[in-house]
Amino acid sequence: MKNKYLNFISDEHFLNCIANLHSAYIKAKNNISKKSFYSNKVDTIKLTFDSKFNDIDEEKLIEAEILRQIDKSINNSIGTFHEQILGGIDGFEVGKLSGIDIKAKDETLFAVFGNSEIPKNISDAIFDKLANTALIFSKAKFYYVLLDDFSEINEKWIIGNEEYRVSQKRVFKISIKEFYNEITLQTDAFQQLQSNLTIVIDDYLETIKSKSY
């Protein structure tokens, strides 16, 4: 039977990924209450100044800060969501090697997820890990996937500076958008995900609602 949502993973798998992310949101909200907000060494003096000088209700400032903390805690879960989605594509799985997030089952592709704005020492360490692993898996491609980049970047990863530059011919840096397209062998895989998110979330929430009756 034809899939309702995406043509590269099953509807059941997609709904399970949504359910897992929803659970992460619930956990994050439960972990950050007003009580825990004040116990996290919040600068109440600054809070008062922000409220008075910016003419913003203190209660609204607190709510905004709680949302910011929830958003910060959920970022890792978004990365996990992409891992689970991509791990459901035929021929791929969530990485079992330490530090590898997604891999091809035939060991021709390995990927690590991260962001574009990370400290240089961490970036260099990730590159070194991929480059060293490339020496073991001589026929594989290796990707550093930028979760916060939705451009069309897909290029050989080069680290260093103008005087000293290092690369490995099978280690690439790629946007999350292009990575979806790369491993599905489609040109619109990420667009499919974006276009169907609202539909699948609504279907999932409707299922939750019906179970509560």
Rank of each mutant, 00 (worst) to 15 (best):
G91H: 09
L6Q: 03
N161W: 07
I102T: 08
L21K: 14
S212I: 11
E93D: 09
D106V: 08
R165W: 01
I78R: 05
K156V: 14
D203Y: 07
E155P: 00
D55F: 09
F8L: 07
S23L: 03
G87L: 11
T198E: 14
Q191T: 13
K139M: 08
L147S: 06
I126G: 01
M1Q: 09
W157N: 06
N196Y: 01
L61Q: 04
G114N: 04
V166W: 02
D148I: 09
S138I: 09
T48F: 10
F179M: 09
Y143D: 12
T207F: 08
H22M: 02
Q168M: 04
K27R: 11
G99H: 11
I85F: 04
D128Y: 05
F110H: 12
Y38M: 06
N3V: 01
V200Y: 01
D148C: 06
F150D: 06
K173Q: 11
Y180L: 04
R170P: 01
F150M: 07
L185P: 00
A24D: 14
F37V: 07
Q168D: 13
L86W: 02
G91Q: 10
N3K: 03
L97Q: 03
N132Q: 13
E163A: 08
I174S: 11
I158K: 14
A111M: 02
N75Q: 12
I70C: 04
I122P: 00
F150V: 06
C17P: 11
N30T: 06
S116M: 10
T108F: 12
E107D: 12
E152F: 00
K156W: 00
E58P: 00
F81N: 06
L21H: 15
E117W: 07
T198A: 10
M1K: 12
K103F: 02
F150H: 13
K129R: 15
G99V: 10
D203S: 12
N31Y: 07
R170N: 13
L97G: 01
L109G: 00
E163C: 02
K139G: 05
Q192M: 01
F81I: 02
R68L: 04
D188W: 09
G88V: 10
Y144E: 07
D43L: 03
E63M: 05
A189Y: 12
F142V: 05
L67Q: 11
F190I: 06
N31V: 01
I176Q: 08
A140K: 08
G99I: 08
L205M: 14
T187Q: 14
T207S: 14
F142R: 10
A131Q: 03
D188H: 14
N154C: 12
I70E: 01
A140E: 04
I126R: 11
S36T: 15
T187C: 07
K129I: 00
K35N: 10
N121Y: 09
Y38Q: 02
N115H: 08
S23K: 15
R165K: 13
K41L: 11
G95E: 13
L47N: 11
S33L: 11
F49A: 11
N75M: 11
K105W: 00
A111H: 04
D128M: 01
Q194W: 01
Q84I: 00
Y143K: 12
N7I: 01
S33K: 05
K129E: 04
I102K: 04
S123R: 13
T48Y: 05
F127A: 03
S10Q: 02
K60D: 12
E182G: 00
I122S: 03
I85H: 04
N161R: 09
N161Y: 07
